[in-house]
Simulated assay, not measured.
Amino acid sequence: MKTLYLALLFTPALCLSAGKPAQVTAQQFVNLQQGDAVFPGFRRAHAKGICISGEFHSNGQLAGYSKASLFNEGVTPFIGRLSIAGNNPTAPDLKSPVRSMALSFAISHTEQWRLAMNTPPVMAVADPHTFYQQIQAVQAGPAAIQQFLSEHPEASEFRAWAAQYQATGSFAAETYHSINAFYLVNSNGEQQAVRWAMQPTVAVPASALDGNDALQTEIASRIAGAPVVFNWVFTLAEPADDEDNPTKAWPENRRQVTAGQLILTGTTAQLEGDCHAINFDPLVLPSGIAATRDPILRARSAAYVESYRRRAKEQLDGALEGSNND
Protein backbone atom coordinates (compact mmCIF):
# COMPACT_ATOMS: atom_id res chain seq x y z
CA MET A 1 0.00 0.00 0.00
CA LYS A 2 2.80 2.43 0.86
CA THR A 3 4.32 1.94 -2.61
CA LEU A 4 1.05 2.91 -4.24
CA TYR A 5 0.77 6.11 -2.19
CA LEU A 6 4.35 7.01 -3.08
CA ALA A 7 3.61 6.51 -6.75
CA LEU A 8 0.56 8.73 -6.58
CA LEU A 9 2.72 11.64 -5.50
CA PHE A 10 3.71 12.01 -9.10
CA THR A 11 0.48 11.60 -11.03
CA PRO A 12 -0.51 14.45 -13.31
CA ALA A 13 -3.85 14.78 -11.57
CA LEU A 14 -2.31 16.67 -8.66
CA CYS A 15 -2.02 20.39 -8.28
CA LEU A 16 -2.07 23.47 -6.11
CA SER A 17 -4.40 24.91 -3.52
CA ALA A 18 -6.96 27.37 -4.81
CA GLY A 19 -8.46 29.71 -2.27
CA LYS A 20 -7.48 27.86 0.90
CA PRO A 21 -6.01 29.87 3.81
CA ALA A 22 -2.64 28.04 3.69
CA GLN A 23 -1.83 27.98 0.01
CA VAL A 24 0.95 26.01 -1.64
CA THR A 25 2.81 27.68 -4.49
CA ALA A 26 3.55 26.00 -7.79
CA GLN A 27 7.24 26.11 -6.96
CA GLN A 28 6.74 24.39 -3.59
CA PHE A 29 4.56 21.67 -5.04
CA VAL A 30 6.91 20.84 -7.90
CA ASN A 31 9.88 20.97 -5.52
CA LEU A 32 8.17 18.33 -3.42
CA GLN A 33 7.38 16.24 -6.50
CA GLN A 34 10.91 16.20 -7.85
CA GLY A 35 12.63 15.73 -4.49
CA ASP A 36 16.41 15.82 -4.28
CA ALA A 37 16.96 13.85 -7.49
CA VAL A 38 16.56 16.08 -10.55
CA PHE A 39 16.66 14.60 -14.05
CA PRO A 40 17.21 17.63 -16.31
CA GLY A 41 14.91 17.92 -19.30
CA PHE A 42 12.37 15.39 -18.03
CA ARG A 43 8.94 15.73 -16.49
CA ARG A 44 8.81 16.05 -12.72
CA ALA A 45 5.88 13.63 -12.77
CA HIS A 46 5.65 10.47 -14.87
CA ALA A 47 9.15 11.03 -16.18
CA LYS A 48 9.37 7.64 -17.87
CA GLY A 49 7.08 7.08 -20.82
CA ILE A 50 6.67 6.27 -24.48
CA CYS A 51 4.99 8.31 -27.24
CA ILE A 52 1.94 6.87 -28.96
CA SER A 53 -0.09 7.95 -31.96
CA GLY A 54 -3.31 6.89 -33.62
CA GLU A 55 -6.92 7.88 -34.20
CA PHE A 56 -10.15 8.28 -32.29
CA HIS A 57 -13.11 6.82 -34.18
CA SER A 58 -16.23 8.55 -32.90
CA ASN A 59 -19.61 6.86 -33.30
CA GLY A 60 -21.52 10.13 -32.79
CA GLN A 61 -23.27 8.96 -29.60
CA LEU A 62 -22.08 12.01 -27.61
CA ALA A 63 -22.79 14.61 -30.29
CA GLY A 64 -26.04 15.58 -28.56
CA TYR A 65 -24.23 16.21 -25.30
CA SER A 66 -21.23 18.19 -26.57
CA LYS A 67 -20.63 20.56 -29.45
CA ALA A 68 -16.97 19.50 -29.58
CA SER A 69 -16.40 18.34 -33.16
CA LEU A 70 -14.39 15.40 -31.84
CA PHE A 71 -17.68 13.70 -30.93
CA ASN A 72 -19.24 14.03 -34.36
CA GLU A 73 -19.20 10.76 -36.23
CA GLY A 74 -15.77 10.52 -37.82
CA VAL A 75 -12.05 10.13 -37.21
CA THR A 76 -9.64 12.44 -35.32
CA PRO A 77 -5.88 11.76 -35.03
CA PHE A 78 -4.03 12.14 -31.74
CA ILE A 79 -0.58 12.25 -30.20
CA GLY A 80 -0.23 10.70 -26.77
CA ARG A 81 1.94 9.18 -24.11
CA LEU A 82 1.88 6.09 -21.91
CA SER A 83 3.87 6.35 -18.68
CA ILE A 84 4.56 5.08 -15.20
CA ALA A 85 4.46 7.14 -12.02
CA GLY A 86 7.61 8.67 -10.58
CA ASN A 87 10.23 11.30 -11.36
CA ASN A 88 12.96 8.90 -12.55
CA PRO A 89 13.12 8.37 -16.36
CA THR A 90 15.25 5.23 -15.86
CA ALA A 91 13.07 3.52 -13.24
CA PRO A 92 12.04 -0.13 -13.78
CA ASP A 93 8.65 -0.22 -15.47
CA LEU A 94 7.21 -2.87 -13.17
CA LYS A 95 8.09 -1.13 -9.91
CA SER A 96 5.39 1.49 -10.32
CA PRO A 97 1.81 0.44 -9.54
CA VAL A 98 0.33 3.53 -11.22
CA ARG A 99 0.19 3.85 -15.00
CA SER A 100 -1.07 6.73 -17.10
CA MET A 101 -2.33 7.67 -20.52
CA ALA A 102 -2.16 11.24 -21.84
CA LEU A 103 -3.65 12.42 -25.13
CA SER A 104 -3.54 15.56 -27.26
CA PHE A 105 -6.12 16.21 -29.98
CA ALA A 106 -5.66 19.06 -32.45
CA ILE A 107 -9.34 19.66 -33.10
CA SER A 108 -8.84 22.74 -35.26
CA HIS A 109 -6.25 25.44 -35.98
CA THR A 110 -7.36 27.22 -32.80
CA GLU A 111 -8.52 24.42 -30.47
CA GLN A 112 -6.82 21.53 -28.74
CA TRP A 113 -7.92 19.05 -26.12
CA ARG A 114 -5.42 17.50 -23.73
CA LEU A 115 -6.29 14.67 -21.40
CA ALA A 116 -4.34 13.11 -18.52
CA MET A 117 -5.69 9.83 -17.14
CA ASN A 118 -4.53 7.40 -14.48
CA THR A 119 -5.29 3.87 -13.34
CA PRO A 120 -6.88 4.91 -9.99
CA PRO A 121 -10.56 5.88 -10.43
CA VAL A 122 -10.59 8.25 -7.44
CA MET A 123 -8.19 10.31 -5.35
CA ALA A 124 -7.39 9.88 -1.67
CA VAL A 125 -8.13 13.51 -0.73
CA ALA A 126 -10.35 16.22 -2.13
CA ASP A 127 -8.19 19.35 -2.26
CA PRO A 128 -4.60 20.14 -3.27
CA HIS A 129 -3.53 21.60 0.07
CA THR A 130 -4.50 18.39 1.86
CA PHE A 131 -2.76 16.37 -0.83
CA TYR A 132 0.41 18.35 -0.22
CA GLN A 133 0.12 17.33 3.42
CA GLN A 134 -0.39 13.72 2.32
CA ILE A 135 2.87 13.85 0.35
CA GLN A 136 4.68 15.17 3.39
CA ALA A 137 3.19 12.37 5.51
CA VAL A 138 4.29 9.70 3.04
CA GLN A 139 7.80 11.08 2.99
CA ALA A 140 7.84 11.05 6.80
CA GLY A 141 7.29 7.28 6.87
CA PRO A 142 4.65 4.55 7.42
CA ALA A 143 3.53 5.76 10.84
CA ALA A 144 2.92 9.28 9.56
CA ILE A 145 0.91 8.18 6.53
CA GLN A 146 -1.21 5.82 8.63
CA GLN A 147 -1.91 8.65 11.04
CA PHE A 148 -2.76 10.97 8.14
CA LEU A 149 -5.17 8.46 6.59
CA SER A 150 -6.85 7.79 9.90
CA GLU A 151 -7.61 11.51 10.08
CA HIS A 152 -9.03 11.59 6.52
CA PRO A 153 -11.98 9.23 6.10
CA GLU A 154 -12.55 10.62 2.60
CA ALA A 155 -9.68 8.34 1.50
CA SER A 156 -11.76 5.19 2.11
CA GLU A 157 -12.75 4.59 -1.53
CA PHE A 158 -9.20 5.06 -2.78
CA ARG A 159 -7.89 2.69 -0.11
CA ALA A 160 -10.48 0.09 -1.11
CA TRP A 161 -9.45 0.37 -4.76
CA ALA A 162 -5.74 0.14 -3.90
CA ALA A 163 -6.32 -3.00 -1.83
CA GLN A 164 -7.83 -4.91 -4.76
CA TYR A 165 -5.96 -3.44 -7.75
CA GLN A 166 -3.76 -5.86 -9.71
CA ALA A 167 -1.39 -4.42 -12.31
CA THR A 168 -1.61 -6.04 -15.74
CA GLY A 169 1.16 -7.13 -18.08
CA SER A 170 0.62 -4.37 -20.62
CA PHE A 171 -0.22 -0.71 -21.01
CA ALA A 172 -2.83 -2.06 -23.44
CA ALA A 173 -4.69 -3.95 -20.71
CA GLU A 174 -5.16 -1.16 -18.15
CA THR A 175 -8.22 1.02 -17.58
CA TYR A 176 -7.34 4.73 -17.52
CA HIS A 177 -9.67 7.09 -15.61
CA SER A 178 -10.23 10.82 -15.87
CA ILE A 179 -10.54 10.82 -12.03
CA ASN A 180 -11.84 14.42 -12.10
CA ALA A 181 -15.21 15.26 -13.63
CA PHE A 182 -15.84 17.64 -16.54
CA TYR A 183 -18.90 19.09 -18.21
CA LEU A 184 -20.03 18.26 -21.71
CA VAL A 185 -21.68 21.37 -23.17
CA ASN A 186 -24.02 21.13 -26.16
CA SER A 187 -25.01 23.74 -28.74
CA ASN A 188 -27.87 24.91 -26.49
CA GLY A 189 -25.51 25.59 -23.59
CA GLU A 190 -26.79 22.61 -21.59
CA GLN A 191 -24.21 20.97 -19.32
CA GLN A 192 -23.82 17.32 -18.39
CA ALA A 193 -21.25 16.33 -15.77
CA VAL A 194 -19.21 13.29 -16.80
CA ARG A 195 -16.24 11.17 -15.93
CA TRP A 196 -14.66 8.88 -18.47
CA ALA A 197 -12.45 5.85 -18.78
CA MET A 198 -10.41 4.28 -21.55
CA GLN A 199 -11.39 0.64 -21.24
CA PRO A 200 -9.11 -2.04 -22.74
CA THR A 201 -10.19 -4.71 -25.19
CA VAL A 202 -7.45 -7.19 -24.27
CA ALA A 203 -6.33 -8.95 -21.08
CA VAL A 204 -2.64 -9.52 -20.36
CA PRO A 205 -1.37 -11.19 -17.15
CA ALA A 206 1.42 -9.44 -15.29
CA SER A 207 3.49 -12.63 -15.15
CA ALA A 208 4.23 -12.31 -18.88
CA LEU A 209 6.61 -9.36 -18.36
CA ASP A 210 10.24 -9.01 -17.35
CA GLY A 211 12.98 -6.39 -17.72
CA ASN A 212 13.67 -2.75 -16.89
CA ASP A 213 11.70 -1.47 -19.89
CA ALA A 214 9.18 -4.30 -19.92
CA LEU A 215 6.03 -2.22 -20.44
CA GLN A 216 7.55 -0.06 -23.17
CA THR A 217 8.98 -3.07 -25.00
CA GLU A 218 5.71 -4.96 -24.76
CA ILE A 219 3.49 -2.14 -26.04
CA ALA A 220 5.85 -1.26 -28.90
CA SER A 221 5.91 -4.90 -30.01
CA ARG A 222 2.16 -5.27 -29.62
CA ILE A 223 1.31 -2.17 -31.66
CA ALA A 224 3.85 -3.13 -34.34
CA GLY A 225 1.86 -6.35 -34.80
CA ALA A 226 -1.65 -4.88 -34.72
CA PRO A 227 -3.47 -1.75 -33.52
CA VAL A 228 -4.35 -1.56 -29.82
CA VAL A 229 -7.96 -0.57 -29.14
CA PHE A 230 -9.65 1.08 -26.16
CA ASN A 231 -13.33 1.85 -25.74
CA TRP A 232 -13.85 5.45 -24.61
CA VAL A 233 -16.68 5.17 -22.07
CA PHE A 234 -18.37 8.19 -20.44
CA THR A 235 -20.33 7.97 -17.18
CA LEU A 236 -23.10 10.55 -16.90
CA ALA A 237 -23.73 12.08 -13.48
CA GLU A 238 -27.15 12.49 -11.93
CA PRO A 239 -28.13 15.45 -9.72
CA ALA A 240 -27.23 13.55 -6.54
CA ASP A 241 -23.62 13.07 -7.70
CA ASP A 242 -20.92 15.51 -6.62
CA GLU A 243 -18.86 16.39 -9.67
CA ASP A 244 -16.50 18.54 -7.59
CA ASN A 245 -15.25 15.79 -5.27
CA PRO A 246 -12.66 13.43 -6.83
CA THR A 247 -12.60 11.10 -3.79
CA LYS A 248 -16.12 9.76 -4.41
CA ALA A 249 -17.01 7.30 -7.15
CA TRP A 250 -20.43 7.60 -8.71
CA PRO A 251 -22.88 4.68 -8.38
CA GLU A 252 -22.42 1.83 -10.83
CA ASN A 253 -25.98 2.19 -12.14
CA ARG A 254 -25.27 5.57 -13.72
CA ARG A 255 -25.81 5.74 -17.46
CA GLN A 256 -22.74 5.05 -19.56
CA VAL A 257 -22.17 6.03 -23.19
CA THR A 258 -19.41 4.59 -25.36
CA ALA A 259 -18.29 7.50 -27.54
CA GLY A 260 -16.16 5.39 -29.85
CA GLN A 261 -12.79 3.67 -29.99
CA LEU A 262 -9.29 4.96 -29.41
CA ILE A 263 -6.98 3.11 -31.80
CA LEU A 264 -3.24 3.12 -31.14
CA THR A 265 -1.21 2.53 -34.28
CA GLY A 266 2.33 3.78 -33.54
CA THR A 267 4.95 4.18 -30.81
CA THR A 268 8.14 6.26 -30.59
CA ALA A 269 10.76 6.61 -27.89
CA GLN A 270 9.74 9.70 -25.93
CA LEU A 271 12.90 11.73 -26.60
CA GLU A 272 12.43 11.14 -30.33
CA GLY A 273 8.66 11.60 -30.45
CA ASP A 274 6.30 14.56 -30.55
CA CYS A 275 4.82 13.78 -27.14
CA HIS A 276 7.95 14.86 -25.25
CA ALA A 277 7.36 18.54 -26.02
CA ILE A 278 3.66 18.51 -25.03
CA ASN A 279 2.43 19.76 -21.68
CA PHE A 280 -0.55 17.46 -21.08
CA ASP A 281 -2.48 19.98 -19.01
CA PRO A 282 -6.06 18.67 -18.73
CA LEU A 283 -7.40 22.21 -18.55
CA VAL A 284 -6.54 22.73 -22.22
CA LEU A 285 -10.11 22.24 -23.37
CA PRO A 286 -12.04 22.80 -26.61
CA SER A 287 -15.43 24.41 -26.99
CA GLY A 288 -17.96 21.84 -25.81
CA ILE A 289 -15.90 20.67 -22.80
CA ALA A 290 -15.71 22.66 -19.55
CA ALA A 291 -14.02 22.28 -16.17
CA THR A 292 -16.00 21.63 -13.00
CA ARG A 293 -15.33 23.45 -9.73
CA ASP A 294 -13.21 20.58 -8.43
CA PRO A 295 -10.50 22.54 -6.55
CA ILE A 296 -7.76 20.15 -7.63
CA LEU A 297 -8.75 20.27 -11.28
CA ARG A 298 -9.23 24.03 -11.27
CA ALA A 299 -5.71 24.67 -9.95
CA ARG A 300 -3.75 22.06 -11.92
CA SER A 301 -2.38 24.36 -14.58
CA ALA A 302 -0.03 26.23 -12.26
CA ALA A 303 1.90 23.07 -11.32
CA TYR A 304 1.90 21.86 -14.93
CA VAL A 305 3.28 25.16 -16.17
CA GLU A 306 5.99 25.23 -13.50
CA SER A 307 7.11 21.69 -14.27
CA TYR A 308 7.09 22.41 -18.00
CA ARG A 309 9.00 25.66 -17.49
CA ARG A 310 11.76 23.88 -15.62
CA ARG A 311 12.34 21.13 -18.13
CA ALA A 312 12.06 23.49 -21.09
CA LYS A 313 14.74 25.73 -19.58
CA GLU A 314 16.95 22.71 -18.92
CA GLN A 315 16.55 21.53 -22.50
CA LEU A 316 17.36 25.01 -23.82
CA ASP A 317 20.42 25.33 -21.58
CA GLY A 318 21.64 21.95 -22.77
CA ALA A 319 21.16 22.94 -26.41
CA LEU A 320 23.02 26.21 -25.89
CA GLU A 321 25.89 24.42 -24.13
CA GLY A 322 26.14 21.95 -27.00
CA SER A 323 26.16 24.75 -29.53
CA ASN A 324 29.00 26.52 -27.72
CA ASN A 325 31.10 23.38 -27.87
CA ASP A 326 30.81 23.01 -31.64
Rank of each mutant, 00 (worst) to 15 (best):
R43W: 03
N118S: 11
M117K: 01
A124G: 09
R44Y: 11
G60E: 10
P121A: 07
V125H: 06
R44G: 11
T119D: 02
D93M: 06
H109I: 10
S69W: 03
W113Q: 01
G86E: 10
L94D: 08
Y132M: 10
K67R: 12
D127W: 06
F56W: 04
G54S: 03
I50R: 00
L70H: 07
W113L: 00
L82R: 00
T110A: 11
S100W: 01
P120G: 06
S69E: 08
H46Q: 09
G74A: 10
T90W: 06
R81I: 00
A102P: 01
R44E: 14
N118M: 10
F78Q: 01
P92M: 02
F39H: 06
M101T: 13
R44F: 13
V122N: 02
H46W: 04
F39D: 08
P92C: 09
F105G: 02
T119P: 00
I79E: 00
T130D: 13
F78Y: 07
Y65P: 13
H109T: 14
G80R: 00
L103S: 06
A68R: 03
G54V: 08
G80S: 07
T76D: 10
F78I: 03
L94W: 05
A124K: 04
L115P: 02
N88S: 11
H129E: 13
H109F: 09
P89L: 10
D127I: 15
N87E: 05
L115M: 10
A106I: 15
R44T: 15
G64I: 06
G86T: 13
A116W: 01
